[in-house]
Design a binder for these strands. Sequence first.
DNA 1: CAAACTAGGTATACGACGTAAGCTTTCAGC
DNA 2: GCTGAAAGCTTACGTCGTATACCTAGTTTG
Lengths: 224, 224
Amino acid sequence: MPAQKRLNRDELVATAMSVVDAEGLEAVTVRRVAQQHDVTPMALYRHFDDKDGLLDAVAERVLDDVRLPAADDRPWHEQMADLLTAFLDAMRPHPNATPLLFDRILSAESGLAITERTLTLLAEAGMSVDDGAEHACKALNFLVTLVLTEPGRGDDTDPAARDEALRAKRARLLTLDPARYPHVVAAAGPLTDCPSAEAYYRRGVESIVTAMRGPAAAAAPTAV
Amino acid sequence: MPAQKRLNRDELVATAMSVVDAEGLEAVTVRRVAQQHDVTPMALYRHFDDKDGLLDAVAERVLDDVRLPAADDRPWHEQMADLLTAFLDAMRPHPNATPLLFDRILSAESGLAITERTLTLLAEAGMSVDDGAEHACKALNFLVTLVLTEPGRGDDTDPAARDEALRAKRARLLTLDPARYPHVVAAAGPLTDCPSAEAYYRRGVESIVTAMRGPAAAAAPTAV
DNA sequence: CAAACTAGGTATACGACGTAAGCTTTCAGC
DNA sequence: GCTGAAAGCTTACGTCGTATACCTAGTTTG
C-alpha cells in the first residue's frame, strides 16, 4: 500500500478491508489505516465522518460486490436460491466483515437492491407484505450468520494459528465426559470444522429457502 | 449496586449484565463495573483473567438461564421447537448480550447441555452425526441471530431514543424512490419494526424447525 | 501467641485508541 | 501570480485495557 500524493477514499476503504480480512474487525484502527498510507490519523477525517463512517464504507463495499442474478421465469424459490447464493459469494471473501452487515443492509444502496429483489420474489410467491418483510429480514440475516459462524473459521488468516486454535477447540470437546455429552463428543469433528465449505453453504441456502416455503412446501412442491 | 466488604464474582457479572442490558456491549468497561462496586479497576483482575473473561461469564450467565425442557415421547420436531423456545426465552431478556453467544455456546457448560440435547433430537430424527452437527450449529446460531436482529431493537433501552431512531430509519426508507424500490417502500413498516415479538419468535422457531426437517418434511409429516 | 503466608484490595503508570481544535500546505481557476 | 477551498498536519485530551508493584487484613502454622 504505498501512498500516492493525494489520499483517496476508495483506497482507504480498500486498506481497511485488507486489515479486516487479515486480522479481523478489531484490528481496524484509524491510526493503522492512516499509517499504511503514510499519513496522519486525522487525515482520514477529511474523508469519513468518523470511524463508523469508515466501517459503513467497508460494509458497503461488500454489498457492492453482490452480482444480482437477472430475473427470469423459473419458480420463485429457484431464483431465490440463486439470489441468496449471489449474496453469499460476495460475503465469503470477507467473513470478518460480516458482523457489520447486520445493521447496514438497509443503509447501503446495494443492500436495498438485494432487499428489493428478495421482497419481489416473496411477493411473487404470494406472501403478504408483512410476511415477506419478516421472511426477507430473517433470510438475509441468517445468510450473514452462515458466513459469520462457518465452523472452523478464526479471526486471523494465518493458517498456522487458525489450525492451532481449531485443534485446541476440538481437543477440549474430546476431553468431555462421554457419559454426559455423548453426541457432542461424537460430533467434535464436524462441530469444530467444516469438511466442505461448498456443501455447507449449499445446504445453508437450501435450508433458508425451505424455511421460506414453509412446512407445506413439499406437499405442493411446484406451487408459485 | 452498593458494595459490601468483599468483592464477589457473581455480583460483578450481574453488574456487567445490567450495563449490557441498559446500554449495550460497548458500554461494558472494566472501569465502569469497578466503579459500581466502589473499587479500583484492577480489583476485577483478581476475579477474571481479563475483560474477555468477564464477558465469558456474562455469556455463561445467559446460557445458565436456559431451562431445558424434559425429554418426552412426542415427535422429535415438537420437542425441538420447545428446546429452541427455551433457549430463546433465556436470550430475549438480554438481547444486547447475544453477540457474545456465537463463539461461546460450545465453551460454557450449559451451552454444551443445550447442544447435546439438540444433537440428541436430531439423532432421533435419523440424522447422521455430520448432518446433525451442521444442523445443530446452524439452528443455534440462527436463534441467536433472531434475537440479535429483532426488527425495531436498538442498543439502548431508553424508549424515547429508541423510538426516535426507529422513526428516522423508517422515514429514510419512505423517502426512497418508489419506482426503484417499490417493495422496500411498501414494507418500510414491517422492515423496521415488529408488531408482535411473540409472533416473530414463534414463526422464527417454526422456520428453523422446518429447515431441519428438510424439503421432504411435509410429505411425511409424522416421520421420526 | 507471634510469625509467615496469602487472597484481595490499591496506586501508579504505560501505550493505544478515537477525535476535537486550530494551523499549514497544496492546487485549481481566475 | 492571487485567492479560496480542499486536504493534510500538529497538538492535545480523555478513555480504554492492563502490567507492575505495593499494601493489608485474615488465616494458618510453629
